[in-house]
Amino acid sequence: MKENLSQEKFDLVISADKSFGDAARELFEYRELFYILAWRDFKVRYKQTVIGALWALLRPLLTMVVFTIIFGKIAGLPSPGDAPYAIMVFTAMLPWYFFSSSFQEGSNALVANANMISKVYFPRIIVPVSSLFVNFVDFMISFGVLALIMVFYQFSPSENIIYLPLFVVLLALFTVGLSLWMSALNVQYRDVRYVVPFIVQLGLYVSPVGFASSVVANDWRVLYSLNPMVGVIDGFRWCVIGGDIKFYWPGLWLSIVITTLLLVTGCLFFLKTERKFADVI
């Protein structure tokens, strides 16, 4: 019977497993859905709120103020280069908020869209990834705020800023990789719902958001850099503040390696479990 089916020509064969090529082709066919889902999330995001998109500004801004006071003033931690402490914090706030929001929404995205998943077919990977697009809009808005803060402090960015897009890509890939893992796990294990906020909360203190990573003792630097956000945040600071910040290269390489690993395994795991989503969600 099997030979029978493969002898005839079919546009599509539905079977227990799907090849990587099929998955990629489907993703291309459904590319508009990325945009539509992101647009939906963006549309409903600030519905029935009074100040709407201002929330996108307020959250990082207030955190920056608090961190600047606690780490900069009270704890008296140093700011590398000649940048004001506020700018140093806000530069890290950008990738951090992008990561934490996308990651939280992405991990929960499949479960939140359970109804769609059990009733319609589309490449499931679109759902967690589209959460990134929405948060990218917030990211761009925050970027505008950074520019305003820099004008306020009369601080001009370093020429390294042309490399910033590379770090944005690294940040996005890391976020996607982790979101793929967590969202797929969340379908089967709802524990993820409790793990993710914990990771995010802890991550804010473990990552060099409120302080410069140079504060960490040199002996511990490699271990510290196992957190890929360290490489990303250092990169952002290097691009924006530049000056005499000494870039810690092993940290960046480690960040790239771990991100790649997460992304590849995340994709594989997602594609492997995706076909069972509708049965267990």
């Binding site: 099997k2 079919f10 546009d11 599509l12 539905i14 799907k18 077919y121 069972k276």
Partner: peptide
């Protein structure tokens, strides 16, 4: 299965044309 929401455990379905379910 025909609308690809869940995969068959064994066996195959061949489809020609665009399916909407």
């Amino acid at each position: 299965i025909l609308s690809r929401i869940t995969a068959p455990t064994t066996g195959k379905v061949g489809v020609n044309g665009r399916i909407a379910s």
